[in-house]
């Protein structure tokens, strides 16, 4: 027991240690190398960092559940873009314009519904055909992105609603609106995964699907709900971000799926399913954002950021493999 708990603590705690290391490193390195004379760990800087983590962060939190469940969703970036277009475009419809500020919740609702429906389509295909989620969502990634271009053309869709912008830029207790959405989503999903039947089943199915079936768990519908959830979260991410920016390009959200997966994996969730934690993913998201900001702070060229993140990801996975080797051996018999 102690070894298992120790390993868990090490795995799930590692990302927070990593964040501390990053903070220390960039603070100290910043003293010597920074082009600005502001300290790295400036309070406003950190608040901004959380806000900037929100778009990918909200998606990554959902991706954690999908991956614990033993699936993957590559279509979140396209879903994100499509939901953004629905949000901004719907507010220009005469019917909604006539509603004044009531158009805002309706537009939000439509965008979130779009995400949930797109997710449901993925889930139903995975369930009913039995095709691997990787393939299904690879297809829907292309398909949904195609829809974006069909609806939108090559031009950006723009609509600024100042009430909405004010809401998105507001700070409550110091935190930005987007940060609140990130934190509340994290809390809700953490409760979902650690305290509810749905969460328990997600782990069981991801760890051993056959045993889950034999325990009477409805595996198919369970997975569909998870895809609905991640579709909804991709849309929520878009809604939060575009409420402020007010303009969506058809290429927006590209590679979001990979950034989300990177954050999840960095947080210690296993690609093979059955293992992972929402809070560690939150750590993973913050770690990536810190790295981006920190490298900028010490004057590294933006081009190097991806290289460094890539190297760190591989290093983390190697470390993970070493840590887990012993545990695997015991199971082999």
């Amino acid at each position: 027991m102690t070894t298992a708990r120790y390993r868990d603590a090490l795995k799930y705690g590692a990302i927070w240690v990593f964040i501390l290391v990053e903070l220390a490193f960039f603070s100290i390195a910043g003293e010597f190398m920074s082009t600005s004379d502001k300290a790295f760990m400036d309070f406003d800087n950190m608040l901004l960092l959380l806000k900037q983590s929100a778009p990918i962060g909200i998606i990554a939190l959902g991706m954690t559940i999908i991956m614990i469940n033993g699936n993957i969703d590559l279509s979140v970036g396209a879903t994100y873009a499509l939901a953004a277009i629905v949000l901004l475009d719907s507010m220009t419809w005469p019917a909604l314009q006539a509603m004044g500020d009531w158009a805002i919740p309706v537009a939000w609702g439509l965008a979130l519904l779009t995400g949930a429906v797109l997710g449901a389509i993925n889930g139903l295909i995975v369930w009913k055909t039995g095709v691997d989620a990787f393939i299904v969502t690879l297809g829907s990634m292309l398909g949904y992105r195609g829809l974006v271009f069909m609806i939108n053309g090559e031009q950006p869709t723009s609509h600024l609603n100042w009430t909405l912008v004010d809401f998105a830029e507001a700070q409550f207790l110091g935190l930005h609106t987007a940060t609140w959405f990130l934190l509340i989503t994290a809390l809700a999903l953490w409760l979902l995964m650690t305290r509810t039947v749905h969460g328990r089943n997600a782990y069981a199915i991801g760890n051993n699907r056959e045993a889950a079936v034999n325990a009477g768990i409805r595996v198919g519908p369970h997975m569909v709900w998870n895809f609905v959830l991640i579709g909804f979260l991709a849309a929520l991410s878009a809604v939060v971000f575009y409420s402020e920016s007010g303009s969506v390009n058809p290429n927006d959200g590209m590679l979001f799926e990979l950034w989300a997966i990177t954050a999840v994996v960095l947080g210690g969730t296993k690609l093979t399913g059955g293992y992972g934690s929402i809070l560690s993913t939150l750590g993973g998201v913050i770690a990536i954002q810190l790295l981006r900001k920190g490298l900028g702070h010490i004057g590294a060229a933006t081009e190097t950021v991806n290289l460094v993140i890539g190297l760190i990801l591989i290093a983390v996975l190697l470390l993970d493999r070493q840590l887990n080797r012993k545990g695997q051996e015991e199971l082999k018999i």
Binding site: R200, A204, E210, G274, L331
Partner: peptide, 25 residues
């Protein structure tokens, strides 16, 4: 047992209550 009966990565309690967890809320 290992492939059909147990979720090996889960703890003892969770494995034991898996089929009836719906009723334990």
């Amino acid at each position: 047992r290992k492939h059909q009966g147990l979720v090996l990565g889960m703890n003892c309690r969770d494995n034991m209550t898996l089929p009836q967890i719906d009723d334990l809320t």
